[in-house]
Computed example of a mutant assay.
Amino acid sequence: MAGTEFVVVGGGVIGMMTTLQLAEAGHTVTLVERGLCGRESSWAGGGIVSPLYPWRYGPAVSQLSRWSEGFYPELARRLKEESGIDPEYRQKGLLYLRVDDADAALAWADELGKPLERVGADFLYAREPEAAPGFEEALWMPTLGSIRNPRLVRALQARLAAMPEVTLREGAEVTGFEVAGGRALAVKTDAGPIAAGQVVVCGGAWAAGLLETLGVALPVRPVKGQMILFKAPPGLVQRVVLMDGRYVIPRADGRVLAGSTLEECGFDKTTDARARESLWASATAIIPALADCEVEHHWAGLRPGSPDGVPFIGGVPGIDNLHVNAGHYRNGLVLAPASTRLLVDRLLGREPILDPAPYSLAGRL
């Protein structure tokens, strides 16, 4: 049974960024993914590099978000150079329409020194001429960026595939762990066991099921989100626009994503006409001209829901070399750079970028 320094379980954006950082530090890593890397929630989301309403989150999420937001421009540049795939990071800001807690938002921004301002109709329609008419004001966050997440995960996968330190094991399903003497000796897969010095579980919505094989009850559950994609002409929508909890996100080629639903229905990823109609209604309420555009695609993904949306990052109590990074809920892509760096710092004995205590499994299980 061949061994490797690290085995990372789960090939989403969390698992791939963990693998990348460990490999760049010179360590051998085997990344195990039951399907294709990046094809679950990392592929299904919208790619906004911020929580939707960041002032509504506690400090644990906010600290990870702030660190990650500043990391994405350089990450996108590096991945484009190293993989030849452009993740299409766009920093064109976000317009909030009809925010009922605008005063709280502005107070939050003032406290943190975050650019956020109340703007009038002239400002709003100068930037988004096709936004729904009749708004006298909006909130404007000029620094917000978005990334084309399917291209981000393709770039990450291509980068990892080219690294000699990395072994990609796609199409291999993890069925459990071999544990003895308080250590995980190997990761069991349907293609045989993989021995490891350290094991990191980045299984997203499936992480709880993996740890359940060890009698560990991780409170992470699947929460379905459905989205639609409009084939719109380039320039119809220039930046992210958010209203009543729903959003539209433009891509460089003109396509516009609209999302998303929040549904508690287990591991069901089917789409349905009611959700499609609801998403279409929300999108066309934000940008009425989208009503004339074809809906090109409709899909669903499963977010890893957790209490208060605070991820679990750290060691599994009682098993010295087993670690978890899961439970990011709606903000997996948003928080990925900071949450993976935080765990890799711990794995490699480095000074952590943030206090790891709020994310620890101890006391939260």
Rank of each mutant, 00 (worst) to 15 (best):
G327Y: 04
L262K: 12
G254I: 00
D272E: 13
F230N: 03
Y89L: 11
Q226I: 13
E33K: 04
P59F: 01
R56S: 13
A336T: 12
G309N: 07
V241G: 04
D103P: 05
A283I: 10
L144C: 12
E170L: 04
L218N: 06
G349V: 08
A162P: 06
L160P: 04
V13H: 01
G254P: 00
L160V: 10
R169W: 07
E165G: 08
T175N: 08
E82H: 03
G315R: 15
E33F: 01
V166T: 03
A105G: 05
P193A: 06
A205M: 06
E277W: 12
D268C: 02
G93M: 10
P54Y: 05
T28C: 03
A275R: 08
K231D: 15
A138C: 14
F135A: 15
A186D: 03
F71K: 13
S83C: 06
P234T: 12
D244P: 04
A104C: 00
A208M: 07
A132R: 14
D320G: 11
E69F: 02
H323L: 10
L94C: 12
W108M: 09
I48W: 02
R34C: 11
P193H: 01
L279D: 05
E111Q: 08
R303L: 12
G3M: 07
K92W: 09
V166I: 01
E69R: 10
D101I: 00
G318R: 10
A258P: 11
K114L: 14
L342F: 02
P233F: 04
L79I: 11
K92A: 14
S360G: 07
L210F: 11
R56F: 05
R151F: 10
G47E: 02
M227P: 01
R183W: 03
A102F: 03
P142E: 13
A289L: 09
P150S: 11
A155R: 02
G38L: 08
P233D: 11
D345K: 06
A326S: 02
P54T: 08
A102Y: 06
I353V: 14
R39V: 11
I194S: 02
A252E: 13
E178W: 03
L348V: 07
A217I: 04
S41R: 09
P193Q: 01
S146G: 08
A109M: 08
